[in-house]
Amino acid sequence: MSMITHHLSDKLLMAYSAGTLPEAFNLVVATHISVCDACRATLAGFDAVGGALLDDDCATMGADCLANVMARIKSGAATTKPEARPSDAVLPAPLVDAIGGGLDRVQWRAVGGGVRQAILKTSDKASARLLHIPAGAAVPDHGHHGLELTLVLQGAFHDEDARFARGDVEIATQDTQHTPIAEPGQDCICLAATDAPLKFRAILPRLAQPFLRI
């Protein structure tokens, strides 16, 4: 846990706390926080900002509201206990929920170069996918039209800028052009989310893009 060196930005954590991120980014944030106490604590700080703002202003409630609420409380289930959420060694609970099972349930599809992907169901404001990159293989050189978050779940990759291992998030923007390469030794599994299609340099991935939906 203490090995994580690339974290979420304050901007992303604040938007996640406020509840204004596209679903695909929410999934990356929830998954990262599941394994990162530093960002969990920062999020708690942003939730405290929300609490302070909530506490600062009030509207008038109808006179019968409390009685309505008490009636509903007395007629319904007494209390709710937090449910245990399954997770596995690679996938934290938010991803197991999104997939409907562990790593063995992922429906991989080949996308060329030995790389496999599985697109996760989210709202269409941004897309989320799991990527399986064989040890030593590269994702084609590409740039970005929008924001791309890549969270490492297993193995490690590096690009021109830095190295990313389990728990690390790479935040790529319009200004980032990179070729992520999985390190030798262990296949790399990542969760990637983006709110715009990637821009590939080479002609072949560009032709394949509509089919691969990347």
Partner: peptide, 8 residues
């Protein structure tokens, strides 16, 4: 709004 899963 977009679904917002909670962390583990």
């Amino acid at each position: 709004r977009d679904k917002r899963p909670d962390p583990e």
